[in-house]
Simulated scan of single mutants.
Amino acid sequence: MTILIGYVPTPEGEAALDTGIAEGKLRSENIVILNSPRKGAAVDATLASADQVAALLKRAHDAGVPASIRQPGHTDDLTDEFIDIADEIDASLIVIGLRRRSQVGKFILGSHSQRILLQADRPVLAVKAGEKS
């Protein structure tokens, strides 16, 4: 089976990656790192560079966990893209990072993490930056 990890180059993304690698090692499962930029964006801070991708794969390799990375562009709905890939690879677990937001911020901007937690039909492990498992 495979663990799907949502990754963006932020402390929350790093926490998700660290936890996902640890879970992959514990369960003897492969990991797929999903880093999905918005299609058509001239610059996207959520997109990992080629050097970052190499470093992510090396971290997994050094931990003894087979890994691959996917960087499909998404249009309007990152959550649907995320859940579609989880279905495609038959993920046994989804690992995502959470950031602290106010209630108003959640209401106005929505929350991809919240939607993944509610809509995924498989276990989701949500971690915060600074917390290790």
Rank of each mutant, 00 (worst) to 15 (best):
M1I: 07
I5D: 01
Y7L: 02
Y7T: 01
V8I: 12
V8L: 08
V8N: 11
V8M: 08
P9D: 03
P9F: 03
T10C: 05
T10H: 08
T10A: 05
P11W: 10
P11C: 09
E12A: 15
G13N: 02
E14M: 10
E14R: 13
E14W: 00
A15M: 00
A16S: 09
A16D: 02
L17E: 06
T19R: 15
T19N: 12
G20I: 00
A22W: 03
G24S: 04
K25S: 08
L26K: 11
L26C: 12
R27W: 12
S28V: 05
L34G: 02
S36L: 11
G40W: 09
A41W: 12
V43G: 07
D44Y: 12
A45Y: 14
T46I: 11
A48D: 05
S49L: 00
Q52L: 10
V53Q: 15
A54M: 14
A55T: 12
L57E: 03
L57S: 02
L57A: 02
R59L: 06
H61I: 04
H61C: 12
H61K: 13
D62W: 03
A63K: 06
A63S: 02
V65N: 09
A67I: 03
S68V: 10
S68R: 09
I69L: 15
Q71F: 06
P72R: 07
G73W: 09
G73A: 14
H74W: 07
H74S: 01
T75Q: 14
T75G: 13
T75I: 09
D76P: 13
D76I: 05
D77P: 15
T79E: 11
D80F: 12
E81L: 14
E81M: 13
E81S: 14
E81C: 10
I83R: 00
I83E: 00
I85G: 07
D87Y: 01
D87S: 11
D87A: 04
E88L: 13
E88R: 09
I89H: 05
D90T: 14
I94P: 09
I94T: 03
V95G: 04
V95I: 07
I96S: 04
I96M: 07
I96V: 11
G97Q: 01
R99H: 15
R99M: 06
R101P: 11
R101T: 14
R101M: 14
S102M: 07
S102C: 06
G105L: 00
F107R: 09
I108W: 09
H112E: 09
H112T: 15
S113C: 12
I116G: 05
L117C: 07
D121M: 10
D121I: 08
D121A: 15
R122F: 00
R122D: 01
P123W: 05
L125N: 07
A126P: 11
A126N: 04
V127S: 10
K128D: 11
K128E: 15
A129V: 01
A129L: 04
G130C: 04
K132G: 15
